[in-house]
């Protein structure tokens, strides 16, 4: 339940950061699929967790020191919303200026996703395919395994 709320808040945040496509995906994936899968797993593994008596001091210290180091490191990063940051100088202006004329698709995100970075997306789809096959192999072959066992 909270996982769904978390994803929805993330989606709202992405909209304010101009990433409408990403917000869309996050809302559908996080609010829909992830929550259902998490609930399914929890219902099969039991709701209660064994309490850990010791206070987790060492993890807390590791986390705080890592976080402090990372925050120290951000002082060299470009400012938020800065239009001349290095990330905006490389290929993105090219994509923005020519995507519409070259592909006939006004949504630049779709144009990059499917056309400029087609290999990348092919790889991602392959990962999703393999994850699906992996889950099927792990959980879906109940009947066959029983036949072998007999």
């Amino acid at each position: 339940m909270l996982s769904g709320v978390f994803s929805l808040l993330m989606a709202g945040l992405f909209v304010t950061l101009d990433a409408v496509d990403v917000a869309f995906t996050e809302a559908a994936v996080g609010g829909g699929i992830t929550t259902v899968l998490l609930l399914a797993t929890i219902s099969r593994t039991g709701e209660t967790e064994k309490r850990n008596p010791a206070f987790p001091l060492i993890p807390l210290m590791i986390v705080i020191s890592t976080g402090a180091l990372l925050i120290y490191g951000t002082s060299d990063m470009p400012l938020f919303g800065d239009a001349i940051a290095p990330i905006h100088q490389h290929v993105s202006p090219l994509y923005l200026s020519e995507a519409q004329n070259k592909t006939g698709v006004p949504n630049v995100v779709t144009a990059i996703l499917a056309s400029y970075r087609g290999y990348d997306t092919l790889g991602e789809v392959t990962v999703i395919f393999s994850a699906g096959v992996g889950v099927l192999l792990l959980l879906g072959s109940k009947r066959r395994r029983d036949e072998n066992a007999v």
């Binding site: 990433a19 938020f80 239009a83 940051a85 905006h88 923005l96 006004p106 949504n107 630049v108």
Partner: peptide
């Protein structure tokens, strides 16, 4: 990182 202040969503 991709946000530019004053910019809008990348749909031409």
């Amino acid at each position: 990182m991709g946000k530019i202040i004053g910019g809008s969503a990348p749909i031409i």
